[in-house]
């Protein structure tokens, strides 16, 4: 476990900014205490400082996880967000997609969102912006990348992909052993 280097910090923040924009600052400046980012076994954790200090007393090999895992840094040097980060992306996200009830299951099995399943999309979503996918009852289901801008969606075919799947809460069941 160690703090992020500046390059890693930039890597993480650029990815987070795609979803929550300038609200990244809100993750750093919290009223309920100090929070920090830590790298452990190639994964980025967002953790309260007190808890991190407790965890630092344990041998590195024995730590499985601490705080909330935001994602991992791949061997290729990219940062991938994990579904566990959804709790923090959802309240701050700027672009949202609501999907129909009939398409929820499809999305939760790890498929992209098609135009046919699209219920609503927030205004002025640019192409390739990070979006949080919500159910029709406003429950966050996961997140992805907008494949089309809001204006383009209107003229899309029913089978056109609107949002590329990145993570969904179905992973808590499908992928349980890999989630930390």
């Amino acid at each position: 476990m160690r703090p992020l280097k500046n390059e890693e910090t930039v890597l993480v923040f650029t990815k987070l900014k795609k979803y929550i924009g300038s609200n990244v600052r809100a993750l750093l400046e919290r009223s309920d205490g100090l929070y920090c980012f830590r790298l452990h076994n190639g994964r980025i954790y967002y953790v309260k400082e007190d808890i991190m200090k407790f965890a630092a007393t344990l041998p590195r090999d024995n730590i499985v996880s601490l705080g909330v895992c935001f994602g991992k840094i791949t061997k290729g040097g990219k940062f991938l967000l994990h579904i566990t980060a959804l709790d923090f992306l959802h309240p701050y996200c700027q672009n949202k997609i609501w999907i129909k009830e009939s398409a929820e299951q499809n999305f939760m099995y790890g498929n992209h969102v098609y135009k046919s399943g699209l219920s609503r999309i927030s205004e002025n979503t640019p192409k390739y912006a990070g979006v949080v996918v919500l159910s029709s009852k406003d429950i966050p289901l996961g997140f992805g990348v907008a494949a089309k801008a809001t204006a383009e969606c209107r003229h899309a075919d029913p089978m056109d992909i609107i949002c590329f799947h990145q993570a969904d809460i179905g992973e808590y069941v499908r992928n349980e052993e890999a989630l930390i």
């Binding site: 703090p3 500046n6 910090t9 990244v24 400046e29 100090l34 980012f37 830590r38 991190m52 630092a56």
Partner: peptide, 18 residues
């Protein structure tokens, strides 16, 4: 950087990066 260094300093550094 120290793993359990000053949290305030780290926060400042992160905000600078941002």
């Amino acid at each position: 950087e120290f793993t359990t260094g000053s949290g305030q300093v780290e926060k400042k550094r992160n905000i600078e990066v941002l």
